[in-house]
Amino acid sequence: MKIAFSPCPNDTFVFHAWAHGLIPNAPELEITYADIDITNRLAASGDSPLDVLKVSYAALPWVLEDYALLPCGGALGRGCGPLVLTAGTRTDAAALSGKRVAVPSDRSTAYLLFRLWAAKHVPGGVGDIVIMPFHEIMPAVRDGHIDAGLVIHEARFTYPSFGLSMMTDLGSWWESDTGLPIPLGAIIARRSLDLPAITKWIQASVAYAWANPEAPREYVMQHAQEMDAAVAKAHIDLYVNDFTANLGDSGYEAITTLLNRAAQEGLVPAIDPELLKFQP
């Protein structure tokens, strides 16, 4: 079975057991390690050779005809949202009116959260949206090439070293506005496959990792791109949670709320609720 997921610790932790033949009756995996922006495009291309992929929830409206959202294996969370950063002293939302904002992707939860927040808080809306590699965003804001930047992951902890100020924590805004977790990464599988079986194999892989937390360590660190072991563990602890085993009602509510709000703003195509929820 051909699968693609990121080399991030949460994904390698989740899929370690299946990748190493530890799940009874599960087929051998042919794994492609790829950034989520790449898998988003592959899934939406219409000619992807992959059976199972990790994508952003924000990409679902473009892929649900061919791929089903599985109720496990992905990432939803709290306290892990993206930030909007500026180099100036003004941190009120009005300062973004008509300004240029750099984002790492236009098919990510971070991007949707930013646009939904801006629609409510930035008078007249922002100006140009500039897509640039994630690692270039903070230097570009610092050097004045861009007015503000949307950042994710470890930038939550490193932005002060660039002399930048936080305008807003979009995760905190989303959670206070909706009471729901932040939908980040989803696992999807071709609708022509045995979806109940794939769901069981992924859930078994998650259960194995939780029952044997030391077993995935070498595999996780092999792909962790020089990440410190303590940071990798914190990453896993944050992103591998109850939603990874089963989205549950609140998980589906978070996904539906995000995509419906984004569709109302014209950011994504409207989704068919019948296509969204697969129950094995």
Rank of each mutant, 00 (worst) to 15 (best):
G79E: 00
G98H: 11
L64Y: 00
Y33F: 15
A59K: 14
S108T: 11
A44S: 14
T39V: 00
G77N: 12
G46P: 01
G73H: 03
V63D: 02
V84F: 02
D37K: 07
V52N: 01
A58Q: 04
A110M: 01
E28S: 14
E30M: 11
L69G: 01
L69I: 01
R107H: 14
V84C: 05
V55C: 12
G88I: 08
A44N: 07
S48W: 05
P104Y: 05
G74W: 04
V55H: 08
L70V: 12
T39M: 03
L50S: 00
G46N: 06
G73P: 04
L76F: 13
S105Y: 08
S56W: 12
V103N: 03
A110I: 01
W62L: 14
D66P: 00
K99L: 12
A43E: 02
R41Y: 04
G79A: 00
C72F: 04
L113C: 03
T39Q: 00
G79N: 03
L50M: 12
S45Q: 01
A110F: 00
L96P: 01
C72T: 13
L50H: 10
S108G: 11
R41T: 09
D106E: 15
L116H: 09
W117H: 08
A110W: 04
L116G: 09
V103Q: 00
R41L: 10
T32G: 13
G74Q: 05
S108D: 10
R41A: 15
V84E: 01
R100M: 08
S97L: 09
R107F: 08
T39S: 04
V84I: 15
T39H: 04
A110P: 03
L113A: 01
I36T: 09
A75L: 09
C80I: 15
K54H: 15
L113M: 02
A58R: 03
A59V: 07
L53C: 09
D35E: 14
G98C: 11
D51W: 05
R41W: 05
D51G: 09
Y33G: 07
V84G: 01
N40P: 02
D35Q: 13
N40E: 01
Y67W: 05
L113E: 00
T32R: 14
A102Y: 07
R78D: 01
R78M: 11
P71Y: 09
S105A: 13
F114E: 07
V84Q: 04
A93H: 07
I36H: 06
D35W: 12
G81M: 08
G74D: 07
Y111P: 02
N40V: 06
L53N: 05
G88N: 10
V101W: 03
W117E: 11
A58N: 05
T109D: 04
D66L: 06
W62P: 02
A93C: 07
D37Q: 10
G98F: 12
S97Q: 13
G98E: 12
